[in-house]
């Protein structure tokens, strides 16, 4: 489409087999895991090499031109366990997500401050200082209260969508706080901590289980994107 408008495109692609079928005009296959298109977070030099390799394809005389990024040492995300693959520690069930949110707040705020205000929290529109209320809402959803709602939900956003935005915000809040707390934590350690040790992780798993137990295919699809 873009090429038909006279714009030369070069794409970073993560599934070589798909690129072979779709045949984009210029595509750089990168051997990284999903979520890491440019290989390494916080490594500008490495990211520049990926971008340059994609731009190099603009020199190709004809297409489709499919090239492989030559470096294969960015293994981040290789072992991303989903919730069901993490063994919960026994103490998890007794913890309170609302209390965790309060305890993690200082770490989260320091993370945001250290990242020029960048944060993945922000889909629900609820400020993190009011996340105890967001937790109570998700707890009501987990208990099957189909009426539970928050006044912050925008008119154009359905309640199921809002549940997802709240869950995504809560996850991002926990992960960013944890990355501040343990700066060297691997991705795998972060996922194991969230799903296996925190009440927040258990809360999202519980919301997903409740939605999954309904007959509504939309809610079940939503659950699949919360925890599985």
């Amino acid at each position: 489409m873009l090429e038909e408008q006279g714009i030369a495109t070069t794409a970073i692609v993560m599934v070589r087999e798909h690129a072979e079928k779709v045949k984009p005009p210029r595509a750089l296959f990168v051997p990284f895991y999903f979520g890491f298109a440019l290989g390494k977070p916080d490594d500008p030099a490495y990211q520049h090499r990926v971008i340059q390799a994609a731009f190099d394809l603009l020199q190709a005389a004809e297409g489709p031109a499919l090239a492989d990024f030559p470096e294969d040492d960015a293994a981040a995300g290789a072992t991303m366990p989903q919730a069901s693959q993490v063994t919960a520690e026994p103490a998890q069930a007794a913890r309170s997500a609302a209390d965790e949110v309060t305890a993690l707040r200082a770490f989260y705020e320091r993370w945001v401050e250290g990242h020029s205000g960048r944060t993945a929290v922000g889909l629900s529109g609820i400020p993190q200082r009011r996340f105890r209320g967001l937790v109570r809402f998700l707890e009501a959803c987990a208990q099957g209260d189909a009426e539970a709602d928050l006044t912050e939900r925008p008119a154009g956003v359905s309640r199921p969508q809002f549940i997802r935005y709240c869950a995504d915000d809560l996850k991002a809040f926990y992960y960013e706080a944890r990355m501040e707390q343990q700066r060297d934590a691997t991705e795998e350690a972060l996922h194991r901590w969230f799903w296996g040790s925190t009440a927040g992780g258990k809360l999202i798993t519980d919301v997903a289980a409740t939605l999954n137990a309904t007959e509504d295919p939309n809610l079940r699809a939503l659950a699949y994107g919360l925890a599985r």
Partner: peptide
């Protein structure tokens, strides 16, 4: 860049990459 967020609905990819650095997806 602090005003850019992601609402992708898949958890089939590792979100920690973009939590750390937007540029890993959107340079």
């Amino acid at each position: 860049p602090a005003d850019v967020v992601q609402s992708h609905f898949s958890i089939g990819f590792d979100h920690t990459g973009i939590y750390r650095d937007l540029n890993v997806t959107f340079p």
